[in-house]
Design a protein around this nucleic acid. Structure first.
Length: 464
RNA sequence: GGCGCCAUAGCCAAGUGGCUAAGGCAGGAGCCUGCAAAGCUCUGAUCCCCGGUUCGAAUCCGGGUGGCGCCUCCA
């Protein structure tokens, strides 16, 4: 398995610290609003990584945090009458619902910042004792980046000269110093601790929760892979990395992986730009699986420029998979074809080369259809097709639905009855060779958003 | 100002030194069909521009042009 390590900026051979186990940490969302497509992309990208490793028989422990205390959450809190917990619980559940709809496997561990304040406090205290962190006259605690000789070795994005775009805290010793603990201000949410009244900075939660829940303790690296959006590379991951290095005398992660953005008209989708596309809104129009397929069909490190046309193209590609599945409906799986499995794992093993993977799948679909055209009753072959489809489902999280229901998404019972009625009328007309009527009924169905296909087994229909 | 990414057919998108530049969508032709749909077969690009390295480059190096990102919260 080769992966692209964003710190080394090259493809490297993946070799876990303690095989067959693989420990992965992905930076999760700050829960103050609904998930947008960028969150979905990141979640799907590393869900794919996880599934690939699992298909390669690694034992994956997958952890993703929820940042449930931060400036924006507090701001949102002031706009509502909710408590912190009510607000964050709501968005955590919303996030999980959205990710479920997208077929993202639930993480093994889902820690929340506010439930791990104890370990953050310990880590910060230890950094204070070592003289790596310092307290300002305003009782904020900062990490002194000049005390970490390897600071900036991860992202290599630090700007020593520092043309800062914001007014820096005058009590900071270095421009790259960052808050570990923010003292209690007005209109704040505060926790009491030995560090004083306040709340943790953003970066410390990841280091602390990884140390507490996921880390190997006597190895050079605490975990195998740390992942997240490329926007987190600097400063977030640089800072996490510095905290762990100085507090624990271990490097945080052996490999770092970052996913590219979802863009809209070429610009990064972000809440501050106001061009966010929420997952929940996309789900009103498109099936979650179609959305998943669309978001995973571009390599995870590239930017993906979201647009409806490409999404519909993705749907057509997924439709083909389900049409094949329909042709082998009710057949039990035998064994996945070994060459097919091998080819897919090789492709995914090239830093998740999804394009190559999908090309292999399309080729399989095409060959299977061709052979079924010639020999529709080859039961053994059908059993293998089913097994192959099941493997695809396991690897990519697509094609798991019932093949008939997939094409009926968005059709309610009433419409379904009407469709069936019209189809049987059309069948009668066809028997009488009344093709004018048959074609008129076909047009009527089309106007209902239904297309029909006459096959030797009768007339089948699909929602367009 | 610092650091970095990207540019392949109408669209999406692999390929990063060497067979005829994957795959999908759209388009065209055919088989099948009452006609369609679906499926199958066939069909398209010399890789943003200029210069260099090399026997050989989309692929490496230099210089342009265009687009984007991080350096503030951000997946």
């Amino acid at each position: 398995m080769k992966i692209f390590d964003s710190s080394k900026k090259k493809l490297v051979e993946f070799s876990p610290i303690n095989p067959p186990e693989v420990r992965i940490y992905v930076c999760g969302p700050t829960v103050y609003d609904d998930a947008h497509l960028g969150h979905a992309r990141s979640a799907i990208a590393f869900d794919l990584l996880r599934r690939t490793l699992e298909a390669m028989e690694y034992k994956v422990v997958f952890m993703k945090n929820f940042t449930d205390i931060d400036d924006k959450i507090i701001k949102k809190l002031h706009q509502t009458n909710k408590t912190l917990e009510e607000l964050t619980n709501y968005y955590i559940n919303r996030y999980l619902e959205d990710m479920d709809a997208l077929g993202v496997l639930r993480p093994t561990l889902e820690p929340r910042a506010t439930q791990n304040l104890d370990i953050m406090e310990k880590m910060i205290s230890s950094l204070l004792e070592k003289g790596i962190a310092y307290k300002t006259p305003k009782e904020d605690i900062y990490f002194d980046t000049s005390k970490d000789s390897k600071y900036c070795s991860l992202s290599k994005k630090c700007d020593e000269e520092g043309i800062s775009r914001i007014e820096p805290d005058p009590y900071k010793r270095n421009s790259t110093d960052f808050a570990l603990w923010k003292s209690c201000k007005e209109k704040d949410v505060c926790f009491s601790s030995s560090l004083g009244e306040g709340r943790p900075g953003w970066h410390i939660e990841c280091s602390a929760m990884i140390y507490k829940h996921l880390a190997y303790k006597d190895t050079p690296y605490q975990i195998d892979i740390h992942a997240g959006g490329i926007d987190l590379f600097f400063p977030h991951h640089e800072n996490e990395s510095a905290q762990t290095r100085t507090a624990c005398n271990q490097e945080l992660a052996k490999y770092w992986m970052h996913n590219g953005f979802v863009t809209i008209s070429g610009e990064k989708m972000s809440k501050s730009l106001g061009n966010s596309f929420f997952v929940k809104d996309a789900l009103k129009v498109y099936d979650g699986e179609v959305l998943r397929f669309y978001l995973l069909s571009t390599h995870y490190r590239s930017d993906l420029n979201f647009n409806e046309e490409d999404l519909l193209t993705s749907k057509k590609r997924l439709d083909k998979l389900y049409r094949l599945k329909k042709r082998v409906y009710g057949v039990k799986a035998s064994q996945v074809e070994s060459n097919f499995k091998k080819a897919l794992l090789e492709a995914m093993g090239e830093d998740l080369n999804i394009s190559k993977t999908l090309a292999i799948i399309d080729n399989f679909i095409s060959l299977a259809n061709e052979r079924l055209d010639k020999n529709p009753k080859d039961k053994k072959f059908k059993q293998q097709i089913v097994a192959n489809l099941e493997f695809i489902e396991k690897l990519l999280g697509i094609g798991g639905k019932d093949a008939y229901s997939y094409f009926q998404i968005g059709v309610d019972e009433e419409l379904k009855r009407k469709i069936e009625e019209l189809i049987s009328k059309r069948e009668e007309a066809k028997k009488r060779k009344d093709f004018t009527l048959a074609d008129r009924i076909r047009e009527e169905l089309r106007s209902l958003g239904i297309k029909v296909m006459d096959t030797p087994q009768g007339t089948l229909w699909e929602k367009i």
